[in-house]
């Protein structure tokens, strides 16, 4: 494994239970210091992949390698060390509703470090400043909007200056302004801190704008295509074209599998 790869997914298979396989023999590499986007329709296993990287679940087959170390979910110490180096932004923020904005961002600092309160105070305000919400520090979580919640969650995710930041659908449900802000933050953070960013999304324009590398996935984790944004936009592969152009019908069918119209509407057998 070369030094430019931070994460390697090696022939990984995974399912929550034996009847459903979410990921079927997936192999990927994520480059260090780059913004990589995982695109694909709902249910193709993108979020599951993030969870496997974070050691939340164990792959049924294959290995997940983080910075040269194979992720072993049974090894508590290793998981602890691994998770200190990553930050994750959940789809709806997953903020702690019983704490204020300030306390949410301070949470990882207070729990994981022995830093004195004045220093934590400064760090929290700096992180909030980076996402443009320094003035909202005293608010309760119930008082913030969806877009703000996403940004606060981002501030919390970067509180410990992680090497890997994972974004689970960061653009979902945001208005255009907030989307632009989020995209700008993701890119800027990545460049300034030298971190590696993994963005899971179905938002094509935003992802194409900020990514260094794009991976398009289909059901069961099948890799349809990967490459630079320009390469994918110019691709002639029908699956890729359908996805990046948002065409309603193509290789991904519009209709959910159903019996024929004749059967359902009782048209067959009319005398």
């Amino acid at each position: 494994m070369n030094a430019d790869t931070l994460i390697e997914i090696d022939h990984v298979r995974f399912g929550y239970d034996s009847s459903r396989t979410i990921l079927q023999d997936v192999s990927l590499r994520f480059a260090r210091g780059k913004v990589t986007s995982l695109l694909g329709g709902s249910g193709c296993g993108k979020t599951t992949l993030l969870r496997l990287i974070g050691g939340v679940h164990a792959a049924t087959a294959g290995r997940v390698v983080f910075d040269g170390e194979v992720v072993d979910t049974r090894n508590r110490d290793q998981l602890y060390r691994l998770r200190r180096r990553l930050g994750m932004l959940f789809q709806f923020g997953a903020l702690f509703t019983d704490l204020t904005v300030f306390d949410n961002v301070a949470f990882p600092l207070r729990e994981m470090t022995d830093l004195p309160e004045p220093l934590i105070h400064d760090i929290v305000l700096m992180k909030l400043n980076a996402v443009g919400l320094r003035g909202a520090a005293a608010l309760k979580i119930s008082e913030v909007s969806g877009g703000m919640a996403r940004r606060i969650a981002l501030a919390r995710a970067i509180a410990l200056d992680p090497e890997l930041i994972m974004y689970d659908e960061p653009f979902a449900g945001l208005d255009l302004i907030s989307m632009g802000v989020a995209a700008k933050l993701i890119r800027t953070l990545n460049d300034i801190t030298g971190a590696t960013s993994l963005v899971v999304s179905h938002d094509v324009p935003e992802c194409m704008a900020i990514s260094d590398h794009v991976i398009l996935m289909a059901t069961q984790g099948r890799i349809v295509a990967q490459g630079s944004p320009a390469e994918l936009m110019a691709s002639t592969d029908p699956e890729v074209r359908q996805f990046v152009r948002g065409e309603p019908d193509g290789p991904v069918k519009f209709h959910y599998p159903a019996p024929s119209m004749a059967e359902d509407f009782g048209l067959a057998g009319t005398p």
Binding site: G54, V56, M88, F90, A94, L95, T97, P108, M112
Partner: peptide, 21 residues
């Protein structure tokens, strides 16, 4: 509801044991 809002998962990924906390 904490579980539904992924707060428990967030804590786990922050290497904090939600059972203890």
């Amino acid at each position: 509801l904490m579980k539904a809002g992924e707060q428990i998962a967030a804590m786990e990924l922050m290497a904090i044991d939600p059972r203890a906390r």
